[in-house]
């Protein structure tokens, strides 16, 4: 059931011009960022060779490319996710799903998976760019894999937040803006709050704040380090907002 709904969501995304526009724009910007970085790398390469243990092309080109991708997703995911619940409610098609023998959790998970699959496709296409370098040089595949996983985790977190905000309103544009604002708030305030709390020695609140700092949780994986705490925080963020979305939709059934 979850996959049936996910497939329907994915189909819906591909039949909307907005998704294609987002896909195009993100590819274009990522392509530019990649080539620019590559150009920079080629220029400083002679100096790098003189260093004792020089950073490789993966660190200099691929790392920043994924950081750029994460920032782009901050804008793109709210736009892609805004339709998922808000538009169904506005078009009164949500009844189609809620009348079927599927639970609210299945509906929300299906929508989440559909949205995530689309974003995963975007990220995969971007990852394909640095992989072309394998034709001429050797790449650190472990690092690329960890960057890829890190960006997917961020994307999943963004998707869960967008989905929840989309369940709060019947205005897709409102949902997009709300999700964007919430994510931006997390990126800035979540991290500042985490640092502030930690500097005062309040470790538990600081750990909680880290759940809401998606970019901070991306950092270790971005460096190729598997930090189980950061990964757990990323997963908690996803679960939290999916649960909130389910509860929100259930509340509509209960309260009307």
């Amino acid at each position: 059931m979850i996959f049936t709904i996910a497939a329907k969501e994915l189909k819906g995304l591909f039949s909307s011009p907005l998704a294609w526009m987002v896909l195009t724009a993100v590819q274009l910007i990522a392509g530019y960022a990649f080539l620019k970085r590559l150009d920079d790398f080629l220029q400083i390469q002679p100096q790098l060779v003189q260093l004792a243990s020089p950073p490789g092309v993966t660190e200099i080109v691929v790392g920043p490319l994924f950081a750029t991708t994460a920032i782009m997703l901050l804008f793109a995911v709210p736009l892609l996710g805004m339709r998922s619940i808000a538009e169904e409610r506005r078009n009164q098609t949500m009844v189609f799903l809620t009348s079927a023998p599927v639970s609210m959790t299945q509906i929300v998970l299906g929508k989440f998976l559909g949205l995530f699959a689309f974003i995963a496709l975007v990220v995969t296409l971007i990852t394909a760019m640095p992989l072309t370098l394998a034709l001429s040089t050797s790449l650190d595949y472990g690092h690329i894999a960890s960057l890829f996983a890190g960006v997917l985790l961020i994307a999943a977190g963004f998707a869960a937040v967008s989905l929840y905000i989309s369940s709060l309103t019947t205005q897709p544009m409102g949902a997009a803006f709300g999700a964007f604002a919430a994510l931006l708030l997390m990126v800035f305030m979540g991290e500042a709050a985490g640092d502030g709390l930690r500097s005062r020695g309040w470790h538990l609140p600081a750990a909680l704040a880290q759940v809401f700092s998606p970019l901070k949780n991306f950092e270790p994986l971005g460096k190729g380090v598997i930090d189980s705490f950061a990964i757990t925080c990323s997963l908690l963020l996803i679960v939290l907002f999916i649960v909130l979305a389910v509860r929100r939709l259930d509340a509509r059934r209960l309260r009307g």
């Binding site: 059931m1 909307s16 009164q92 098609t93 949500m94 009844v95 799903l97 009348s99 079927a100 023998p101």
Partner: peptide, 27 residues
């Protein structure tokens, strides 16, 4: 089987796709 006052139709699906989705969701 329920037809609400405003038919819950996905305008960007074909009739076949939509009905197939309906029977899938209804197991």
């Amino acid at each position: 089987g329920y037809l609400p006052e405003n038919p819950p139709l996905y305008r960007d699906l074909t009739v076949d796709e939509y009905l197939t989705l309906a029977v899938k969701l209804h197991r």
